[in-house]
Design a protein around this nucleic acid. Structure first.
Length: 490
DNA sequence: GCATGATGC
DNA sequence: AGCATCATGC
């Protein structure tokens, strides 16, 4: 591919909502060009080019080729200024074909199993609904947070833990705290889980199965996320349940195209923390990864100042929360909430962590300063995100900007790395004329539908392609699993 | 169209 | 708490 203005403009500024030619012409050429929609109309007024007058077309979209060429040259000049040519030409543009092939090839679904799953869910919903009505003493719309709030907090007199802009909060966090006080609460949680599964994952997926292919052909968007990740829509295949067993069963309906194929699922182990170790060059963290240690146990040992052998499950779990917090741009307030401890205690954990990982401390400080000076932060491969929030006089907005400054290089570099791996794996499968296909990416994992006779070869292409996507100061560890459906690849 | 709450990494 | 998408109510 020669050039794509939409992706090009996204590389220049990933924070925009749309990247239409009209908009780009205005921004980069100071040129007023009508939007395509203004010419064709939309909805019921939509008109095909072939039904429009030639002279109208020539005066309007007729100039698009010219504008596209000018915008392309302009953006290409900016790539040179920003040192983003590798990112654009070697990563993003080749990725277009990999994503297009993933969309076209699709992910096969066991329709009958999905229909059965849907029925099973409905039966469970019916049972739980009746139980809820009985416990409430009346019928109401459980799906309405407003009506549910009235039942829980007015009729049943449960304590109000949290409020939203519009009334009582009834989210899972609140309900968890109330679960000991009334039987109805856990039924509500169960109801919510079941309804989500039925509507989004059973009926939702059934509605987008292509009747000709029997497959789901998701759209993978390359210009949506501010950090460089790709997104998936219609349907979103990047948030298929896995944490709770009931939801995880959805994965059983995702199968190979036919009996000659299997699924391979390869995921990066702790890629974000490995990226952090690399970027900060923190000796303590790098050593943990070099020694192939469990990073959360290692963090717990460091923070609590004890040998790894003496780390308890609770200590490990707290260290894990701190590691998450570090990746997201930590604050004592949020960590306290997450761990249900005091803010002071959370502050102690964070300070202790930063004492034990001094280069991480310096990085967190420096990256915010860099963001303020330059107006943006960058990833390992020069992806850029502008941070106007850092200049805000509003404390909350400014703090948000600081967390973005800390998180974006980490999340974004991980996105760069898996994109490189995708281009390599996709290219290698094509070059060797293999029947196996890359069919999905879920931020730190790649799923390949593998032709059984090619399994050994493709497993090597996949794991080595991912491990060697880049060379970091720590190894990139990849775990590959196989199965006859997505559920089995665990 | 916005708010809420579910799901994922 | 960083990044997303989808269904539902109002």
């Amino acid at each position: 591919m020669a050039f794509d203005t939409m992706i090009g403009a996204y590389i220049i500024n990933s924070s925009k909502d749309t990247y239409t030619i009209s908009e780009l012409a205005q921004e980069y050429l100071n040129l007023n060009v009508k939007a395509v929609e203004e010419l064709t109309g939309k909805g019921k007024n939509f008109t095909l080019y072939r039904d429009m007058q030639p002279d109208v077309l020539s005066k309007t979209v007729g100039i698009y080729p010219y504008v596209i060429n000018k915008v392309s040259r302009k953006i290409d000049g900016l790539f040179k200024e920003n040192n983003q040519e590798q990112l654009y030409y070697d990563i993003e543009l080749p990725l277009v074909r990999a994503l297009a092939d993933m969309e076209y090839y699709g992910f096969k679904v066991n329709v009958n199993a999905l229909v059965e799953f849907s029925k099973e869910l409905q039966e469970k919903i019916d049972v739980v609904t009746k139980e809820i009505y009985t416990l409430a003493g009346e019928e109401f719309n459980i799906n309405s947070p407003k009506q549910l709030g009235v039942i829980l907090f007015e009729k049943l007199g449960l304590p109000v833990i949290k409020k939203t802009k519009t009334g009582y909060s009834t989210d899972a966090e609140v309900l968890d705290e109330l679960s000991d006080r009334h039987e109805i609460v856990e039924k509500i949680l169960e109801y919510r889980q079941l309804v989500k599964l039925k509507s989004t994952y059973a009926e939702g997926l059934l509605a987008v199965i292509n009747p000709h292919t029997g497959k789901i052909h998701s759209s993978f968007n390359q210009t949506v996320t501010v950090t460089g990740r790709i997104s998936s829509t219609e349907p979103n295949l990047q948030n298929i349940p896995i944490k709770l067993e009931m939801g995880r069963k959805v994965r059983k309906v995702f199968i190979p195209s036919n009996e000659n194929y299997q699924l391979l699922d390869a995921d990066y182990s702790q890629i974000e923390l490995r990226v952090l170790a690399h970027i900060t060059d923190d000796e303590n963290m790098i050593n943990a990864f070099l020694n192939n240690e469990d990073i959360h146990t290692s963090t717990a040992a460091s923070v609590f100042g004890i040998p790894k052998e003496e780390v308890t499950p609770i200590m490990r779990s707290r260290a894990k929360a701190v590691n998450f917090g570090i990746v997201y741009g930590i604050g004592d307030f949020s960590l306290a909430k997450d761990l249900k401890i005091s803010r002071k205690e959370a502050r102690m954990y964070i300070d202790s962590y930063l004492d034990r990982y001094p280069n991480v401390k310096r990085y967190m400080h420096d990256i915010v300063e860099e963001g303020k000076e330059k107006g943006f932060v960058t990833t390992m491969f020069k992806r850029r995100r502008y941070l106007p929030e850092l200049k805000s006089r509003n404390f909350n907005i400014r703090s948000f900007g600081e967390r973005i400054a800390m998180n974006t290089p980490i999340q974004g570099s991980a996105a760069d790395i898996i994109k490189i791996a995708m281009v390599k794996v996709h290219g290698e499968l094509k070059k060797r004329k293999l029947k196996s296909r890359l069919i999905l990416q879920v931020h730190d994992e790649l799923i390949v539908e593998v032709f059984k006779e090619e399994k050994e070869e493709v497993e090597k292409i996949l794991s080595e392609g991912m491990q060697n996507a880049v060379s970091l100061k720590v190894p990139l560890v990849v775990e590959v699993k196989s199965g006859n459906n997505w559920y089995e690849t665990k």
